[in-house]
């Protein structure tokens, strides 16, 4: 294992801003794993830390296949993490909206360019992603539909679901999208949670990455998830919305199978507790996403079901 500073900039009053990478094995650039990009992605840095500890041990045991190089970057944004901000401290920009970056541009464009330069030549790229909707997700791997995506590869993580995301205009500046454009097989790995630690979720993410590495010939007799992943198109997910705003009282969890018309949650009046709305399952299916916000706005997607 070698630890290396991949990118740095000096600050006026703070310690130097550093993006640190851990490299395992030598040779062909086989896999790059990126942990947190935003300051609240605690579960992502935590999962990455476990991965680094595990790979260190596996390397010592000679389990990394010769000729394969793996780079792990636990955090692209320690500055924001240290002050509990999601985005860049001075200008509130999101590094994950700046790829492929520009080395003569603004601060976060430079950081993105500096990182992208170090990660772009890997055959496979995994980002431990967080979702903008706060809530619980079924663990899954997501690939963006760019025309270059190879969805079969995503099944090698052995997670229950592989989701193909249809690209939207704002996706084009993310790491995942640009990786694919630069011919890296890019995966976003979603376990559970973002701003809190979930040990089970981290273990699941770790095993998924090890399974992928084993099946892709990077690890000798490593761990393999035998689960057969189901491919889901993001446009096929069925949304259940809260029509009204109020207190969100939820009765089901992710992974649960629900019948059409089953009561999933109620929206309660925050003043007198009266039920303003009952949210029913629009179809029979598995709960893929469930909001965990105690107050909800109107017309908000609070569940996503796999029919």
């Amino acid at each position: 294992m070698t630890k290396e500073i991949l990118y740095k900039i000096d600050s006026l009053y703070r310690d130097q801003f550093r993006v640190t990478g851990y490299t395992f094995g030598e040779g062909e650039k086989a896999l790059c794993v990126v942990g947190s990009i935003r300051g609240n992605e605690i579960q992502q840095i935590y999962t990455c830390a476990h991965l680094i500890r595990t790979l260190k041990k596996l390397e010592e045991e000679g389990k990394i296949v010769p000729g394969k190089q793996i780079l792990v970057i636990p955090s692209c944004n320690p500055y924001s993490m240290n002050i509990e901000k999601r985005f860049w401290p001075t200008d509130n920009t999101d590094i994950n909206r700046m790829f492929p970056g520009y080395d003569m541009g603004e601060t976060t464009q430079r950081i993105a360019a500096g990182i992208f330069d170090r990660v772009k030549d890997y055959a496979n790229g995994i980002q431990l992603a967080s979702f903008y909707m706060p809530g619980e997700f079924m663990p899954h791997v997501r690939m963006m539909q760019t025309g270059f995506e190879n969805i079969e590869l995503a099944k090698e993580f052995g997670l229950p679901y592989v989701v193909r995301r249809h690209t939207r205009p704002y996706d084009t500046t993310t790491l995942n999208y640009n990786w694919q454009i630069w011919e890296t097989n890019a995966f976003s790995l979603y376990t559970t949670g973002t701003d809190h630690i979930d040990r089970e979720g981290a273990q699941l993410g770790l095993e998924a990455i090890l399974s992928f590495m084993t099946r892709r010939g990077m690890l000798k007799d490593g761990f393999v998830n035998r689960l057969e992943s189901q491919v889901v198109e993001d446009v096929d997910l069925v949304t259940a919305r809260a029509g009204k705003a109020g207190i969100f009282e939820r009765y089901v969890r992710t992974g649960q199978t629900v019948q059409k018309g089953q009561l999933l949650a109620c929206i309660l009046s925050p003043y007198d507790g009266e039920a303003l709305e009952e949210i029913m399952a629009p179809v029979k299916g598995t709960v893929f996403f469930a909001s965990d916000q105690p107050l909800t706005y109107s017309s908000t997607a609070v569940f996503k079901l796999i029919p």
Binding site: S11, T90, D91, T107
Partner: peptide, 8 residues
């Protein structure tokens, strides 16, 4: 007034 490296 406060600028980082790269600030416009």
């Amino acid at each position: 007034p406060v600028v980082d490296e790269g600030s416009l």
